[in-house]
């Protein structure tokens, strides 16, 4: 059974409240709904939530479904920012609509494309999916932050993260630009990359913002 968009939103908020804010139950006001709303009925009949004194709480049965909803939302955000370069102000709204379109297979391909990211653009953890667990053993991400690839890896810069314009400008000044070939020479204590015929060292903070497509 597929849940309605509204119901998915509620599951998401509940999951965040229980898992990240340690808040057992949530009021209807906070969830922007009420006791008789169709989405609440829908969730109650699926046994995903239960009514509590001051609102609703997530039940164990709904946990997995809620986690997946959060995962889809954050993956959608990641996709907006990393690949589609959509402005942060627009991202929220677009991601909200987009997440409901992500079916299982699409979700996994997007997760793989993004290199099984662990954090959303706001820095919150993205719950792992089946594909992530598999990837820990096998396939490498197609595009991933250069901070996460192995020493000796070669590839081309795919894009730069743009959350911090100052850092972005430094990276560009050092010649780290999309399309440029890059090789990881060293990862510890600092990152050292070979770009063209020169070598550049930087800390993890900065390396984190460089995304590469491995050869």
């Amino acid at each position: 059974m597929r849940l309605s968009d509204k119901a998915e939103e509620i599951l998401e908020s509940l999951w965040i409240n229980t898992h990240e804010l340690n808040q057992e139950s949530s009021s209807f006001e906070e969830m922007k709904t009420d006791k008789d709303a169709p989405e609440v009925k829908e969730l109650l009949s699926a046994d995903y939530i239960a009514l509590s004194e001051d609102g609703i709480r997530l039940r164990k049965e709904g946990m997995k479904e809620a986690e997946n909803a959060v995962r889809r939302h954050r993956l959608a955000e990641r996709l907006m920012v990393d690949v589609l370069d959509i402005k942060k102000s627009l991202m929220e709204e677009t991601a909200c609509r987009f997440e409901h379109l992500l079916h299982k297979e699409v979700e996994e391909s997007i997760c793989t494309l993004l290199g099984h990211p662990t954090l959303c653009p706001h820095g919150k953890p993205i719950p792992q999916g089946r594909c992530c667990k598999k990837s820990e053993r096998a396939a490498k991400a197609i595009v991933s932050s250069i901070a996460d690839v192995d020493k000796g890896a070669k590839g081309k810069v795919a894009y730069l993260h743009m959350r911090d314009n100052k850092k972005l400008q430094k990276l560009m000044a050092m010649g780290i630009l999309p399309g440029v070939s890059i090789e990881v020479i060293q990862k510890f204590p600092s990152y050292v990359f070979k770009i063209g015929h020169s070598q550049i060292a930087m800390d993890e903070e900065m390396a984190r913002d460089v995304y590469v497509r491995l050869k």
Partner: peptide, 9 residues
């Protein structure tokens, strides 16, 4: 601000 390190070798 936290300092950022980058340098050409």
């Amino acid at each position: 601000e936290k300092p950022i390190f980058y340098m050409e070798m």
